[in-house]
Structures are given as structure tokens and as C-alpha cells.
């Protein structure tokens, strides 16, 4: 596979390490009342769609960016690649 890195252009997927669903960005609030349930869902439950999937790839053999890649799990077609940090910010994560 080829991942079109937003900063570096097309790179072979072998340069990257895969983590999983980009929902892993949405780490729950540890002080929420139901933090235990939220962390369980965060850590263990997955939508696992057959189709479009937003997922985290890490450019370990490159610039060490974490990327959010939108990829179809049925065809492996990649339709979007973003810097994960930008995605995280857009989802309301800060310091």
C-alpha cells in the first residue's frame, strides 16, 4: 500500500506502524462518573466496519508523524490522509 503523507508525499506503507481505529484519539475523561465504562469501551470495543475506516498510522521509518488515514477495509483504497495532531485538535483535544 501507498500512504500519501500530507507532508512527505506518497510513502510505502511498510514505513509505517499501524495502531488501529482513530477513535483511540478520543480518550475519555478520567474523572467522568462512568470513567471505568468509558475506558472499557475506549480500550476494547470497536466498530470494525467493512468499508470506510479512519485509522491511525505512525511513520516510524520517517518523520514520526501519527496520521489519520481514511481507508476502505474492503478494497484498501485510501481516500484521505491527515496529520493526527490536527485531527486531535479538531476533536477538541488540547493539553
Amino acid at each position: 500500500m501507498i500512504i500519501n503523507h500530507p507532508l512527505l508525499g506518497p510513502r510505502d506503507a511498510a514505513e509505517f506502524v499501524y495502531l488501529g481505529d482513530a477513535a483511540l484519539i478520543d480518550r475519555p475523561d478520567w474523572q467522568a462518573k462512568d470513567a471505568a465504562e468509558q475506558f472499557h469501551a475506549y480500550g476494547y470495543l470497536r466498530d470494525n466496519p467493512a468499508g470506510t475506516h479512519q485509522e491511525l498510522w505512525y511513520h516510524e521509518q520517517g518523520d514520526r508523524s501519527w496520521l489519520v488515514v481514511t481507508r476502505d477495509t474492503l478494497t484498501h483504497e485510501i481516500t484521505d490522509v491527515q496529520i493526527a495532531r490536527d485531527v486531535a485538535r479538531s476533536r477538541g483535544r488540547s493539553a
Binding site: 488501529g20 481505529d21 469501551a41 476494547y44 470495543l45 466498530d47 470494525n48 467493512a50 477495509t73
Partner: peptide
């Protein structure tokens, strides 16, 4: 599993 279980509204601790 995830596809079939989703029809019953279940999310599973599984990735394909």
C-alpha cells in the same frame, strides 16, 4: 463477527 453482530446492535472487542 462484527458485521453480523452489528445487525443485533452489538459492538465487539474484535477487529478484522
Amino acid at each position: 463477527s462484527s458485521r453480523v453482530a452489528a445487525q443485533a446492535g452489538m459492538r465487539l472487542p474484535i477487529e478484522s
